[in-house]
């Protein structure tokens, strides 16, 4: 293991987030109850996903500038781990929603179809579909350089189209999801001061963990592609 300060920081922050997240006091809200602690996991997954996707697109732009295959490997790995974080965000969200939204007395949220129409869920589904398409696109091109170039172009194009949409759609549809006017949990009125003490470290910790997993993936792939990469120079 290559020890770096941020890996240690990630471990410490996550230990704090998990222990503190379950034990520290939270505001008692009638509807949410203790499920509010899921904020430290669910929202952090989405934050980590967006941050990893952003790092991925930065590497795609770098690839387009320099045509160095290392950047392509990095862009791909960050996108893969970001997608994984997104799936985790979905599952934590599903658990949360089954406790708070799924109400047999409320027909508007009785079925899967009505819950999927939540703007935040549409945005998340779009992000995951886009990166699913990104991997399909990668697999359908054989030539390495061309694959790197074409998928980098798609990454940049799709990412820049995704962002206005995440900003537009919530303003078109009604929603039960918290954080209607922008980023949930970032707004200072949204979140209790006690929770912020755990929430921000948790975001940082999960993101660092995602980055850590990605660096491992990148190192494995760099070893696998050693021949091609050394021929390049």
């Amino acid at each position: 293991m290559r020890i770096a300060w941020w890996k240690i920081a990630s471990i410490i922050l996550l230990c704090y987030a998990v222990v503190g997240g379950f034990l520290l006091p939270v505001p008692a809200l009638s509807q949410l109850g203790e499920t509010i602690r899921n904020l430290y996991f669910h929202v952090c997954m989405w934050f980590a996903m967006m941050i990893l996707f952003t790092i991925s697109i930065i590497h795609s732009i770098k690839y387009l500038n320099k045509s160095d295959l290392r950047h392509d490997i990095k862009a791909k790995s960050y996108a893969a781990v970001g997608t994984y974080m997104g799936l985790l965000g979905y599952s934590t969200g599903a658990i949360w929603a089954s406790f708070t939204w799924a109400d047999p007395n409320n027909p508007a949220y009785a079925s899967f179809g009505s819950i999927m129409r939540e703007p935040k869920l549409i945005g998340a589904a779009m992000a995951l579909l886009i990166y699913g398409a990104y991997f399909i696109l990668r697999n359908s091109i054989k030539d390495m350089d061309q694959r790197a170039r074409v998928s980098a172009v798609y990454n940049v194009f799709a990412y820049t189209m995704l962002f206005p949409s995440i900003w537009i759609i919530p303003r078109l549809l009604p929603s039960l999801h918290p954080g209607q006017e922008g980023n949930p949990a970032l707004n200072f009125n949204d979140i209790d001061a006690r929770m912020r003490m755990v929430f921000y470290p948790a975001v940082l910790g999960w993101t660092l963990l995602g980055a850590w997993i990605t660096t491992l993936k990148i190192r494995i792939e760099l070893i696998q592609e050693k021949k091609i990469l050394s021929n390049e120079k």
Binding site: I122, A133, L137, Q146, V150, A158, I168
Partner: peptide, 27 residues
């Protein structure tokens, strides 16, 4: 333009395009 570089272009275009076009269609 992107899909023309890959195999199975026609179906790939739909996969690549649908998630991106959702917000415009909704608008």
């Amino acid at each position: 333009a992107i899909a023309s570089k890959a195999m199975q272009q026609a179906s790939l275009m739909a996969i690549l395009g649908f998630p991106i076009i959702i917000p415009q269609l909704m608008l």
